[in-house]
Amino acid sequence: MKRPLGAAGWIKVILPWILLAGLLLLPATHPSDNLIRLLFITAVWTTTSLGWNLLGGMAGQVSFGFAVFFGLGAYTTALLMHAGHSPYFGFVGGAAIAMLASFLIGLPTFRLRGPYFVIATIGVTEAVRVIMNNLDVTGGASGYRITEDKPFSPLEHYYTAIAAVALAFVVSMVIAGSKFGLALRAIKQDEDAAADLGVNPFTSKLWIHAIAAGLTGIAGGIYARRAAFFYPGDVFAFQTGISILLMPVIGGIGTVWGAVLGGVVFGMVEEELVVHFPNLHLLIYGSLLIVIILLEPDGLLGLLRRLFRLFRRKREDSGSPDADQILWGRGGVEGRKF
């Protein structure tokens, strides 16, 4: 049952390739160091955004606790590099440790539903940060320094980050189109009904949590290697977990492109806007969150779609029901009345 692709469909197929080609060829134009740095950090954030979206967007399990995986990725990579391993081995190790942690966290917390799960993840992330602040192996609160023998190469970092975001994108797309992705969407809407059709919600959530954690761990490792110095109050910060959550919500929760858009916007805002208005970033994110919740649950992507529709004057049902399902619970679209 293959339907012919419309114009929008073709754009969706071609756009990632154009973007990837552009990003890979960009260094040939001798861009400024600042632009490379900006794109690097945006790619790292977008990777975490895509990772979070797998659990929060596709499976509907909103977690405040992704700083744990980001931080574990950072520290594992650093410790492995310190032990003489290649940084790429470090990223894999970081992903593995983050996945392991995701199982330990998921086993108790996935027994909880909705807001109770959210609150539990807040507890987990705060507890982990306190512990990491006190462990000897992490160097404690004073931080950890990575030293590399090689000279600093911004482009190597850049390409690593692009590879990570491409990986996250491909993983997201594959899962979204797979039987597993369908099961996750079913779980998001009605766990019990999904179980009645043979889906095991608990193990499904554990696995997608692990995949999301692995991607976030890789991003943490890549971030740490370039930063070369970091401390628990930075990578394990509550604020880091919030940022990872805000990106897909701002971009458009539940859709892969929404997560990408959110990551890009966040990266740009964080690096450009915050430099100029260092005291206002919480205000910006907070008001954005309020506006999104009350007016446009589909985030920026929903806003773009709405604009697009204005020009095309095409009748369609407004917005994606997925965002409504996640944010407003089982009632779905008709649950919202304004």
């Binding site: 206002l280 907070g286 008001s287 969150l289 944010l327 619970g329």
Partner: peptide, 25 residues
């Protein structure tokens, strides 16, 4: 403006969280 619900919704949680960020700022 939040719709009434018998069970806590994520929307209400995130709305209050957004407001917390504003207050903190």
């Amino acid at each position: 403006w939040l719709p009434k619900s018998d069970t806590p919704t994520l929307a209400s949680l995130l709305l209050m969280f957004g407001f917390l960020l504003v207050l903190q700022n």
